[in-house]
Design a protein around this nucleic acid. Structure first.
Lengths: 230, 230
DNA sequence: ATTGTTTCTGTGACATTGTTATGCCATGGG
DNA sequence: CCCATGGCATAACAATGTCACAGAAACAAT
């Protein structure tokens, strides 16, 4: 009748510390002892709050999905939906690079500390991409894309962007065929392939590049991702 | 002046056992003790033959590259180079799914047992894709693709196929937007995007589907990948 | 055939990992 | 004020990669 409540502060601190360690020093910096030592608690804190190391990783993954969604929310919906799509892709790519290790777990199929995604987690991840589906719908209604299932078109964009990001993080896209060039090229090809005019594509791509700085690069979350909470 | 030679048989046995364990039971089945116990030696065998666990993984990765290259070599070079390209993509995808854990290390940026690719390893991986570059060149010379850098076009194909495979292995491509549908869709979009006529694309895709069975699915290597060596 | 040198290989140990059984004690309702 | 509930620290367990240390086996020279 009189339990001792879990301290939400230490819970948040553990997630923050783990995320920062993962981002800064990679997977080998993730161990119960290292994390809890930095938090000033014992290893048991991980188990009372998350059940296991996997539970902590799951928490970070959900945080990662939420962050991606907030990134997407900052991209405006203009009367040039194709440019919107390009900006969304850039936001996706930038977010992935800012949290590369977490991204590998979220979308790259990488298991971390024995954790791998459940169907529920993947549902969460797919939900994030509804923004892209919506954007594809607007592209179709604007007459830029051929009339087709917007979900399918959104998947095309997702697959291409994910493939690029993943190979980029793997160190496979190097000069002179670097990631930036590949990204522009495949995006243009794909946009033409789904029905847009080559000339319109070029114009929208140019517009998107101007919008990047304001809508995704000037992002306080990038700092938050690295900095400690307090 | 009288050293004792390394036994190449145990070396090969270790690689085979490790590859089979990885394919059948995943990453947690890879430990020096488990592998060497199955090989009937002590854990030291790993260190004398490969220096460390990472060395053994590197060996498996190189074996994986070689296998992919042999897969590619079985795809014919016909007078419909676009169909050739589609068959190559299918071979790539099939190989990745038959050795999913190894593929994740080869191209997915996944580190395994502390191993991660060196620049030299990646060079090896990129070399494998020269087959795709050659095919892109033939597509251009046949007037099917616009005149552009064939290396860049090959990268577009690679990125799309890799993105699809990686999301598929991650369990993200589910009905009704499943991997097969996504693969056909993005490949068609991309082929149109790099300059081919939509009608020609459809024809070549149909041709490639007929060729799949003979040129990539009837492959004794798929069995070899799982079965033990003897 | 014997010897000697070289190097593989088995044994055992060390540090580190995730996880948990076992208590202590802080907390908050009665 | 009391006391039970459950978070937390301590310490242990099994399993991991790795290596120091012999011992033995293999090869070259005599």
């Amino acid at each position: 009748m009189s339990p001792r409540k879990l301290d939400p502060e230490t819970r948040a601190a553990l997630v923050d510390i783990a995320a920062r360690r993962l981002a800064e020093h990679g997977v080998e910096a993730l161990s119960t002892r290292k994390i809890t030592a930095e938090a000033g608690t014992s290893t048991m804190a991980v188990y009372t709050h998350f059940g296991s190391m996997s539970g902590l990783v799951r928490e970070m993954v959900h945080e990662g999905f939420a962050r991606l969604e907030r990134q997407f929310a900052k991209v405006r919906r203009t009367d040039d939906p194709v440019a919107d799509m390009a900006v969304l892709g850039y936001a996706y790519r930038r977010n992935a690079k800012a949290n590369s290790h977490l991204y590998a777990v979220m979308f790259g199929g990488q298991s971390l500390a024995g954790f791998s995604l459940t169907d529920e987690d993947r549902q969460y991840g797919r939900y994030t991409l509804l923004t892209v589906v919506d954007c594809a719908t607007r592209c179709i209604e604007a007459g830029r894309f051929r009339r087709d299932d917007p979900i399918l078109i959104a998947h095309e964009m997702w697959i291409a962007t994910h493939g690029l990001v993943n190979l980029e993080l793997g160190g496979y896209l190097i000069d002179p065929v670097n990631a930036d060039r590949c990204y522009d090229t495949i995006l243009e090809s794909l946009l033409v392939g789904v029905g847009d005019e080559p000339r319109s594509v070029s114009a929208s791509m140019a517009t998107s590049k101007k919008r990047r700085r304001r809508e995704v690069e000037a992002d306080p979350e990038q700092a938050e991702a690295v900095a400690s909470r307090r």
